[in-house]
C-alpha cells in the first residue's frame, strides 16, 4: 500500500459527504494542528488510468466547493503517513499556509468557448465584403478556380476566423473578468476555440458568475458553445501566487 496525495487543506475543513478516492478507496486526512493532507491508501503496483485521474480531480473539486484546498499534482504517493507529515506538512509550512490564506474563500471557475463553424463562417462573410465577393466570384466562375486561389481564399477565411475569435474572446473576458479576482488563460487549441480561461472567484460571488455565464450562453447560443467547469481548486493560480505575480494575503 502507498498513500496517494490529493491536496492540502486546513485542519478544520469538513470532509465532503460520501466522497471516495481513487479506486473507491476511503479518504483520510493526515493532519496536524493547522493543516491537513487529503490522502487515500492505494495498492502500490496499480498503475493509474482515466478513472484515477478523474477521481483525483473530483475529490479536489468536492473539497473546493466548501473549503480552501491546494491541489497536489496527480501521481504523487508516499510510503506512509509519517513521510506525508515530513515531506508535505513540515517541508514548507510557511509556503502552504501562505497559499491557503491567499486562496481563502476563492474558487476557480473555468470557461471554454468554441465557435460553431457554420455560424462563424456566416459571420465573417457578413463582416468582410471582400471575402463574400471572392466567394461569389468563385461560385459564379468555377472554371477560374485554381488550387492556389482556393488556398488563398482558405487563408483569408482562416485569418478572418482568427479575428472573430479575438473579438469574441475579448467580449467574453470583458463580461466575466470584472466578476473575478484574477484571470489566467490556457493556451488555445485551435478547433474553433475562442477562449479557455480560469477565473478566481469569491465563493460567495459564484452565483453572480453563474448568472453571467448563463446570460452569455443564452445571448451567444447561435454562434458559440460554452463549457463551464468548476468549482475547482485554484490550479491556474498556484504558480503565479507562489512566484509573487499574484499577491494579496
Amino acid at each position: 500500500m502507498v498513500v496517494h496525495l490529493y491536496g492540502v487543506t486546513t485542519a478544520d475543513a469538513p470532509v465532503p459527504h460520501e466522497l471516495k478516492g481513487r479506486r473507491d478507496t476511503e479518504l483520510r486526512l493526515v493532519s496536524d494542528d493547522e493543516l491537513a493532507v487529503i490522502v487515500s491508501d492505494v495498492d502500490a503496483g496499480t498503475p493509474a488510468g482515466r478513472k484515477d485521474l478523474l477521481a483525483h480531480a473530483h475529490v479536489l473539486e468536492a473539497y473546493a466547493e466548501r473549503s480552501t484546498v491546494v491541489p497536489m499534482q496527480f501521481g504523487i504517493a508516499l510510503p506512509d503517513d509519517d513521510s506525508v507529515r515530513v515531506q508535505v506538512l513540515e517541508r514548507d509550512r510557511d509556503g502552504l499556509e501562505h497559499l491557503l490564506r491567499s486562496f481563502d474563500g476563492l474558487v476557480q471557475l473555468t470557461v471554454q468557448a468554441f465557435h460553431h463553424e457554420e455560424a462563424a463562417l456566416r459571420e465573417i462573410l457578413r463582416r468582410n465584403p471582400r471575402l463574400l465577393s471572392a466567394r461569389e466570384q468563385m461560385k459564379a466562375h468555377p472554371e477560374t478556380v485554381t488550387p492556389a486561389l482556393q488556398m488563398e481564399l482558405g487563408q483569408a477565411v482562416a485569418s478572418a476566423l482568427e479575428d472573430l475569435q479575438e473579438d469574441d474572446r475579448i467580449m467574453l473576458l470583458d463580461r466575466l473578468a470584472p466578476l473575478s479576482r484574477a484571470v489566467a488563460e490556457n493556451d488555445a487549441n485551435g478547433n474553433h476555440e475562442i477562449v479557455h480561461a480560469a477565473f478566481l472567484v469569491e465563493r460567495d460571488a459564484q452565483r453572480q458568475f453563474d448568472e453571467a455565464v448563463g446570460l452569455l450562453r443564452t445571448e451567444n447560443d447561435a454562434r458559440m458553445r460554452l463549457r463551464y467547469v468548476g468549482p475547482q481548486p485554484p490550479y491556474n493560480f498556484l504558480e503565479p501566487m507562489k512566484s509573487g505575480e499574484l499577491s494579496w494575503a
Binding site: G49, L54, P71, Q73, I76, L78, H196
Partner: peptide, 23 residues
C-alpha cells in the same frame, strides 16, 4: 479538462513514489 489543463498543475514535493499513468 484533467489531461489538457490540470495534469501539469499542482503542488509537487521533492521525493515521492511516482504513480505510473497508463492508457
Amino acid at each position: 479538462d484533467v489531461i489538457n489543463t490540470i495534469l501539469d498543475k499542482g503542488l509537487v514535493i521533492d521525493i515521492y513514489i511516482r504513480v505510473s499513468l497508463v492508457g
